[in-house]
Amino acid sequence: MSEETATIVDRDSVIADIAAALGVEPGELTEDTNLLDAGLDSVRLMQLVEKWRSGGAPQADFVTLAADPVLGLWLDVVAP
């Protein structure tokens, strides 16, 4: 089960999760996208962090992600 959990959170799934939260297509997001400017609020960020942490990315941290809400950084933190 630990191998399965480790593969749940990858770069593509993180992008898909964020796109779904924003109501956009994943292809509309670039690594330079500021996710707060794109409309992601703190409640949805908390939901995403919990999803990623339970999916096997314990390094997902609300404070870190909120401090620099650029997609490329989030990918480096959540799905390195």
Score class of each variant (00 low, 15 high):
9 V>Y: 00
2 S>D: 12
62 F>G: 06
16 A>K: 09
67 A>K: 10
45 L>P: 03
40 L>N: 04
63 V>K: 13
34 N>G: 05
4 E>C: 14
66 A>V: 10
4 E>Q: 13
3 E>K: 15
31 E>Q: 10
77 V>F: 08
47 Q>Y: 01
24 V>F: 01
38 A>M: 05
2 S>R: 15
34 N>C: 07
40 L>C: 00
64 T>I: 15
20 A>G: 04
6 A>D: 05
32 D>S: 12
32 D>Y: 03
4 E>G: 12
36 L>W: 14
24 V>Q: 00
39 G>E: 06
10 D>K: 03
7 T>A: 15
58 P>S: 12
29 L>R: 06
54 S>P: 02
37 D>E: 14
31 E>D: 15
23 G>K: 03
25 E>S: 12
75 L>C: 11
56 G>V: 01
56 G>N: 08
67 A>M: 14
20 A>H: 03
4 E>W: 10
77 V>P: 02
80 P>V: 09
17 D>N: 14
7 T>P: 00
47 Q>D: 11
60 A>W: 05
6 A>Q: 13
31 E>P: 01
21 A>E: 14
80 P>Q: 08
69 P>E: 03
52 W>Y: 03
80 P>H: 07
5 T>H: 09
45 L>A: 05
14 V>R: 01
32 D>M: 06
35 L>Y: 00
36 L>S: 12
1 M>P: 09
57 A>Y: 07
72 G>N: 12
